[in-house]
Design a binder for these strands. Structure first.
Lengths: 332, 332
DNA sequence: TTGAAAGCGCTAACAA
DNA sequence: TTGTTAGCGCTTTCAA
């Protein structure tokens, strides 16, 4: 058996309430008593049982994080932002991968709620009605990080992907391009379908440029698929002269396809993409990118969640973070 | 207030013990009773409180994972391996970043043990005596993943880094090189100091080649630092003709330094490294690498931990996983 | 097959 | 400033 608060109380000749006060930093303890108790704690090697504490206090100082896939650098970076702020506010994180599968997301939500987490941060490609219904049964606050909610009744933290996409494409248009392809991630991801693609099309329309269906390529977000799908563009008689890619894995896949065919970047094709990883800077030519503040997305989500858990009044529950463009060698 | 086991019991006209049996799949319940209880659970939306269950049963079905930095793809990939096996055995994961700081590792260990995790997976650059002492106070099993323990009294899962490094350098020697540099990660990481460097030197010695101090470069493991440290090699009169890099970030940093100076790979320098990320394949020329099975390192660690948590007899507590070399374009 | 009852280790009134 | 006591929601004997 391990040491309990009761053992400490007996050893120190005080009640367990007093030990509890000392452990929880309650000021209503005489310094001498405090010292005596602290000594006993040290001597016995007492370690408070957080499970018992959680049951009695109805707070676990633990939050749940549901992420599609922690092995993806996008989510790994974002999660680090969450974790650092969680540490700052003394919360632990239960981290679970959903692989974006809705049934799994449901299970996880139920599971984490059963574990009595004090709050939840949720990331997914798209919010199903079922998930929203399940979330409604939660009696703890939830924040969506990098995840769209059309109804805006859940708290969210994002960047303005539509505008960012617009900016990227505008940049290519300003560089004189009239045939611009968009190599996208899966359209099952709301941000791709309702933001990036829309921003891309808005920029074209505003410039009076036609939107060609064959210039839109959907990939599964991976380097390999993008490399493969380059052939959809190369076989066109009228090839695009510039490419707006959904992220840097896609961009580098395209880029290698392009260069393996003997074309040059940025001479034959200019490329711009959303930056999620180191790749953008490590490849040559370095990629011009929209820099997404992944770490901050996580950190701000967690900060928002702490406020909600504390019952603080929140001015704006749909936060948009700034982004910037970094011009490098894949554009002129 | 939320629904408790007691509410379900009353609604179903049974005792809470019976509800508990139903929830836990105990066979000693009459099917009719089970159905009645299940109906009530469904109707009331009852969700068992895992904290109360943990207190009563002394099992939390939660494990702790202490990782240097989840935003690093090395650990992100490894953690995914842990997570998948954890899911399979119905464990949750509390994931915490230590930044390799010993005081933080101590805190985290204490914190997670206080949360009554059923087991721990620990990753770090080096095991201090303090940490080992703290680990000894844990009454739950601990597995070290990708982390050395010289005393071998803790369970570990690794690859044979010394032999892998030897293989890599041997390959360069076989290709005719006599001046081979080792661009390493920090020597504060035991695997770098006691495995990779040692394997590098063994290969040189065995081939009767001298070990030149100036051919050993220590970096902080990042692309940027490696790019920067290329100048230490370029300024040498007798430059090396091949480079063995500690990982692909380092290798790509070196590679870009080399190429920005107008040299070619593999013509002027051959490069080989440990593969931790996609980078190895995404850059051109693609890197010849030692492929480290990061996902498996995590998965096997977690599997080992489940066995230990079940009190099963373990044949070998110091597991070595296989690795392989993948020859690509940075060597001939 | 079911129920009664005693904890699990702690917090948080309430009293003193 | 300290102690007493009643839970928190569940599991787990033990009995019936």
């Amino acid at each position: 058996m391990s040491i309990t608060i009761y053992d400490v109380a007996r050893e120190a000749n005080v009640s367990m309430a007093t030990v509890s006060r000392v452990v929880n930093g309650n000021q209503n303890v005489k310094p001498a008593t405090r010292k005596k108790v602290l000594d006993c704690i040290e001597r016995l090697g007492y370690r408070p049982n957080a499970v018992a504490r959680g049951l009695a206090s109805k707070k676990t100082t633990t939050i749940g994080v549901i992420v599609p896939d922690i092995s993806k650098s996008y989510y790994a970076e974002l999660s680090r932002g969450i974790a650092d702020i969680a540490t700052m506010y003394e919360y632990n994180i239960i981290l679970s991968n959903s692989d974006k599968r809705m049934t799994r997301e449901m299970e996880l939500l139920d599971d984490l709620l059963g574990k009595q987490v004090d709050g939840l941060i949720f990331m997914s490609d798209s919010l199903s009605e079922e998930i929203k219904k399940e979330m409604a049964t939660a009696n703890v606050p939830i924040v969506l990080a990098g995840t769209l909610d059309s109804s805006t009744d859940l708290a969210t933290v994002n960047i303005d992907h539509e505008q960012a996409a617009y900016d990227a494409v505008k940049k290519l248009i300003d560089n004189g391009h009239k045939r611009i392809a968009h190599v996208s991630g899966p359209l099952t991801r709301d941000i791709n379908r309702y933001c990036k693609k829309v921003g891309y099309e808005r920029a074209l329309k505003e410039a009076g440029l036609p939107i060609y269906e064959e210039y839109f390529i959907e990939t599964d977000n991976t380097y390999d698929d993008a490399y493969e799908k380059w052939r959809l563009l190369r076989k066109l008689d009228e090839k695009p002269t510039a490419i707006f890619a959904g992220n840097d894995d896609i961009a580098v896949g395209m880029m290698n396809g392009i260069r393996d065919d003997g074309y040059s970047i940025p001479e034959d094709f200019e490329v711009i993409c959303f930056q999620h990883t180191l790749l953008s800077r490590a490849v040559r030519p370095q990629l011009t990118t929209i820099v997404v503040p992944l770490y901050d997305l996580g950190a701000v989500s967690m900060r928002l969640l702490t406020k909600m858990m504390n019952g603080e009044e929140i001015a704006e529950t749909n936060v948009l973070l700034p982004y910037r463009m970094e011009e490098r060698q894949s554009t002129r």
